[in-house]
Simulated scan of single mutants.
Amino acid sequence: MRLLLVVACALIDADARVLIAQRPEGKALAGLWEFPGGKVDPGERPEQALIRELHEELGIAVKEPCLAPLTFASFAYAEFHLLMPLFICRRWEGLVGAREGQALKWVFPKDLRSYPMPPADAPLIPALIDLLGA
């Protein structure tokens, strides 16, 4: 089975809310909510990929020292096995905006389970609740 490495980020605002993005129509798993991020390109480190993806998707600039690894997901989909480290980030430059047609929402960790997520994302929630409180 093919291994797919994807990185995700829990952007945390001053109110201890986490940013989630809704997958737009036309994408796999459309309508589900997820943490921003994306695929790691060949030869790219996870942190580099995340910095690139956050700029592409949200228009923000993140410096590598501001990314802290928190946990990861390992999930077997039918076509591939997903390995997804989740980083947290509390500092970035620029205003968060939806650059790829996705809806964005700032959510308290205790409320994350109210948003339908891909199967790989849901197991990441307890670590965020432990970090930020319910």
Rank of each mutant, 00 (worst) to 15 (best):
P118H: 01
L112F: 12
V40P: 13
C9G: 03
R17D: 05
I12Y: 08
L132S: 02
R52K: 05
K39P: 05
E79W: 03
G31F: 08
P119G: 14
P119K: 10
P36T: 06
I88S: 10
L4Q: 01
P42W: 05
W33P: 10
L104G: 01
C66D: 12
E56Q: 15
I12L: 13
D13G: 06
G43N: 06
K39L: 12
F87T: 07
W33C: 02
P123R: 00
L131I: 08
E93V: 04
K105N: 15
I60V: 13
L5I: 14
D121P: 01
L128D: 05
D15K: 14
L4Y: 01
A122G: 07
L82N: 12
A134R: 06
D130W: 10
A61Y: 14
W33V: 05
L5Y: 14
G133S: 03
R52Q: 07
L11T: 04
C9D: 08
K63V: 09
D121V: 13
E64N: 07
P123L: 04
V6F: 01
L82I: 01
L70N: 06
P109Y: 12
D111W: 06
A14N: 14
G94Y: 00
E56C: 03
G37N: 05
R2H: 08
R52C: 05
L67K: 03
R23Y: 04
I12T: 09
S74M: 08
P24Q: 12
Q22K: 15
G43K: 13
A134V: 00
L54W: 08
L131Y: 08
E44D: 11
A10R: 09
A103V: 05
L58A: 04
Q102S: 14
P46E: 15
E93Q: 10
Y115W: 13
G31W: 02
A120W: 00
I88N: 09
P119H: 06
D41N: 09
P109L: 14
